[in-house]
Amino acid sequence: MSAQQGPEQAVTMRDVAERLGVSTMTVSRALRGRPGIGEETRQRVLAEVAALGYRPNKQARSLRSGGPSELVGLVVTNLANPFYARLAIGLEEVCLRQGARVVLGSTGGDQAVEREVVADLLERGVDGLVVVPSGHDHSHLGGEQLRDTPVVLAAGPPMGIEADCVLVDDFGGTRAACRQLIARGHRRIGFLGLPPSLWTGSERFRGYAVALEEAGIALDERYVSRHRGDSALAEETARAMLVLPDPPTALLTANNRNTVGALRAVRAGGYPVALAGFDDIELADMLDVPLTVVSYDPAEVGRAAAALLYERREAAAAAQPRRVIVATTLVDHPRPRQVRDDSSF
């Protein structure tokens, strides 16, 4: 420990990186003997570590002993949404092959919490971050704020910073689903959306609105709801739409939580309504209500994010940010065939 550091102020990997003007990832790789940095840089790091008296975090080191030697942080907004579980599986699949372990943090959609989670992960010396952003201010995810730790955004594009990102075709998928409902004769289509402040919310609403406009159908605000995905609220909203004097003949939902709410409303009221929704849902093929879903593999979002993260680590710092779009497809889940009861024979 240097003379400047008291016992209550242990030297961190960030301190070493700041003194040398390098990233925490570079310090981490030098200490672990990992490839990807020059020998001169490695020696500079080791010399500075010795001068400052840096000691690796014992807790993090014990977690890694006998297993993966690097950490990748994943920051998501809502652990209750199955999308994030699948995303994490895809991310971990690639990271484990690279000798890294994934550490998960959840923000509840609160940007202040997101800043705290990101800062905590950086302090723990993560070698990269994949973040599902909570809001529009991404300044805390910029290169200077992260001390050059590589970051990839998932499910939302960077705003105010330059960063790699992986997006789902939110606009195209919703537009295709709405077009299919229109092609099947529906003119009054209710939309259970997401807040316009969310990228997914604005893009999926745009897909719905464009499909209506292309078909010459005026957008009726009575048939539109844009709230954070919550099945109970979606059920309540769907019920309100379906008791209008001229109710929608079809409902289009912006995510799987809203689809669940719409299904409950339709089933409880026995309404003859067509349903289509973004995100596939488990057991959709077993429902007694026909359902069309905008399908894609959330694990592919995680795999693509991991690929970008590792490519960024090897790329020059000035390399242009990249954007990957995960494609969607429409899948029809028809009503299951009725099984005849032969018990009376």
Results as ranks from 00 to 15, higher is better:
residue 128 G to A: 13
residue 243 V to F: 01
residue 45 V to K: 01
residue 156 G to Y: 06
residue 188 R to G: 06
residue 330 L to I: 03
residue 266 V to H: 02
residue 269 G to C: 02
residue 279 D to K: 01
residue 46 L to R: 13
residue 76 V to S: 00
residue 181 L to R: 01
residue 333 H to I: 01
residue 11 V to N: 09
residue 336 P to W: 13
residue 305 A to L: 09
residue 143 G to H: 13
residue 37 I to E: 05
residue 223 Y to I: 04
residue 234 A to E: 02
residue 238 A to F: 02
residue 21 G to E: 12
residue 283 L to D: 13
residue 52 L to S: 10
residue 289 V to K: 00
residue 96 L to Y: 12
residue 116 E to D: 03
residue 209 A to F: 09
residue 261 G to W: 00
residue 269 G to R: 00
residue 156 G to C: 14
residue 319 A to E: 15
residue 203 E to L: 03
residue 188 R to S: 11
residue 49 V to G: 12
residue 263 L to D: 00
residue 132 V to N: 10
residue 8 E to R: 07
residue 102 V to I: 07
residue 101 R to G: 09
residue 212 L to I: 06
residue 63 L to D: 06
residue 25 M to F: 11
residue 178 C to V: 07
residue 328 T to I: 01
residue 206 R to T: 04
residue 266 V to Q: 01
residue 141 L to C: 04
residue 26 T to E: 08
residue 14 R to Y: 15
residue 298 P to W: 02
residue 105 G to T: 02
residue 93 E to L: 06
residue 293 V to R: 01
residue 322 R to K: 13
residue 119 A to K: 11
residue 257 R to H: 14
residue 44 R to T: 01
residue 336 P to Y: 14
residue 149 T to C: 14
residue 109 G to I: 06
residue 293 V to W: 01
residue 231 S to Q: 11
residue 121 L to H: 04
residue 34 R to M: 13
residue 115 R to W: 03
residue 150 P to G: 06
residue 120 D to C: 02
residue 73 G to C: 03
residue 284 A to D: 05
residue 173 G to V: 10
residue 2 S to K: 13
residue 115 R to F: 05
residue 117 V to G: 03
residue 204 R to I: 01
residue 311 E to M: 08
residue 133 P to G: 08
residue 7 P to L: 13
residue 10 A to F: 12
residue 57 N to G: 08
residue 42 R to Q: 13
residue 238 A to C: 05
residue 211 A to S: 12
residue 157 P to F: 08
residue 309 L to V: 12
residue 302 G to V: 07
residue 112 A to G: 11
residue 270 G to M: 09
residue 216 G to V: 14
residue 153 L to K: 10
residue 326 V to H: 09
residue 14 R to E: 15
residue 190 G to N: 01
residue 215 A to D: 06
residue 177 A to G: 13
residue 228 R to G: 05
residue 70 E to C: 10
residue 180 Q to R: 12
residue 270 G to P: 07
residue 249 T to L: 02
residue 65 S to W: 10
residue 105 G to N: 01
residue 327 A to R: 08
residue 185 G to C: 14
residue 263 L to K: 00
residue 73 G to P: 04
residue 243 V to Y: 03
residue 133 P to N: 08
residue 169 D to H: 05
residue 199 W to Q: 02
residue 314 E to Q: 15
residue 253 T to W: 00
residue 268 A to M: 08
residue 43 Q to G: 11
residue 153 L to S: 10
residue 85 A to I: 10
residue 13 M to F: 12
residue 262 A to L: 03
residue 88 A to V: 03
residue 61 R to F: 07
residue 168 V to Y: 03
residue 70 E to A: 15
residue 158 P to Y: 10
residue 265 A to N: 01
residue 303 R to C: 07
residue 81 N to W: 10
residue 253 T to Y: 00
residue 51 A to E: 14
residue 37 I to R: 04
residue 111 Q to F: 04
residue 6 G to W: 12
